[in-house]
């Protein structure tokens, strides 16, 4: 046998500051600060007014939740295009049940079940029938959207009961409860993602599903569960937003799924799987929101929004390809 190595391999990184700066989350955060300062100056101080910020947080927090589920799936090397349709579908289901006299709790559970059903279908098609998730969720995206239209007969369902409307207005510590939920989810999941054993296994599944199955990681089950989780989160967001907007519209959140996925990619989730973080995706989402908000504030035509958004996405994709390529070398 060979002599054992003279210097044992080290686990510690080089400078912690450097590795922190090299992270995608940090880059996005710096970009966010830069945009915030620019907007603050350009909008004559309108941007950082607490009213503007709280309106943004209030409106976007439920949607930000959705990126969490998508991040899990991207890490597992799967796509979920159906989330935005699931949001509309679940919202419509709950609204329909409410106006048809079901108790509030039952209606909410009904909406959640409708969403999870779609997630379950996604999981079944992807894991059991081995249909690529891109196609599967493209299909269920249309199915759920159509479901929402059938339920609502193509018109928004309004006239929702008072206590359901009140649900969207509950505040905790002076903040909307779902904003607190978002913060707690982000903090807890950011910590747990690489620590909790089941969540940690997602990285192995996304990196090499075959190899994962050969070390006893049940990648089918994990993938299936993640589709359900993603749909469940989308259903929660859809129901909250239904409550907040006093109605359920069949065309709500149309085409938003691409925004959510883009947010995750900007935040460092890899479209080839095995990489991503919750905090990164949330920051990516915040970046998209800020750009939209800021352009309105400083009076740039909203038609330009997608140019900037698209450019940032392209840069993120290039960064991903570059780092993946270098790693493969």
């Amino acid at each position: 046998m060979k002599e054992p190595q003279s210097s044992p391999p080290k686990a510690a990184g080089d400078s912690p500051l450097r590795s922190l700066l090299a992270r995608r989350e940090m880059i996005v955060l710096l970009l966010l600060l830069l945009i915030a300062v620019t907007l603050q100056v350009a909008s004559n101080g309108l941007f950082l007014q607490s009213r503007n910020l709280s309106v943004m947080a209030d409106r976007k927090a439920p949607e930000a939740l959705v990126t969490i589920g998508i991040t899990f799936l991207l890490i597992a090397n799967q796509f979920d295009l159906s989330v935005a349709s699931v949001m509309a579908f679940s919202g419509a289901t709950t609204a329909w049940m409410l106006v048809n006299g079901f108790p509030m709790v039952v209606s909410i559970l009904g909406g959640l079940a409708a969403g999870v059903l779609i997630g379950c279908l996604n999981g079944f098609l992807v894991t059991r029938l081995q249909i690529p998730s891109f196609i599967t969720t493209l299909g269920t995206m249309y199915i759920a959207r159509s479901g929402a239209q059938v339920i609502t007969h193509g018109r928004p369902i309004g006239g929702l009961p008072e206590d359901f409307i009140a649900l969207g207005k509950i505040q905790v510590f002076g903040l909307p409860w779902y904003f607190i939920l978002l913060v707690v989810c982000v903090l807890v999941l950011t910590f747990l993602l690489k620590k909790q054993k089941s969540l940690y296994k997602i990285f192995f599944v996304g990196n090499n599903a075959k190899a994962a199955s050969m070390v006893g990681i049940r990648n089918m089950r994990i993938t299936w569960n993640l589709f359900m989780v993603s749909a469940f989160i989308a259903a929660i967001a859809g129901i909250i937003l239904t409550s907040k907007s006093y109605s359920a519209s069949p065309i709500a959140f149309e085409r938003m799924e691409m925004r959510y996925i883009a947010a995750c990619v900007i935040g460092g989730a890899s479209i080839s799987g095995g990489q991503g973080s919750i905090i990164g995706s949330i920051l990516g989402f915040l970046l998209i929101v800020l750009i939209g908000n800021g352009m309105t504030l400083i009076g740039i035509s909203p038609y330009w929004e997608n140019v900037i958004f698209g450019s940032i996405l392209a840069i993120a994709a290039i960064a991903d390809a570059y780092s993946t390529g270098r790693r493969r070398e």
Binding site: K210, M214, G216
Partner: peptide, 18 residues
């Protein structure tokens, strides 16, 4: 079916014993 190419050495080592 063996290595997790994009993952690091320690992650590859503990893969079967998480």
């Amino acid at each position: 079916t063996g290595v997790f190419m994009q993952m690091d050495i320690k992650e590859n080592t503990v893969a079967a014993t998480i």
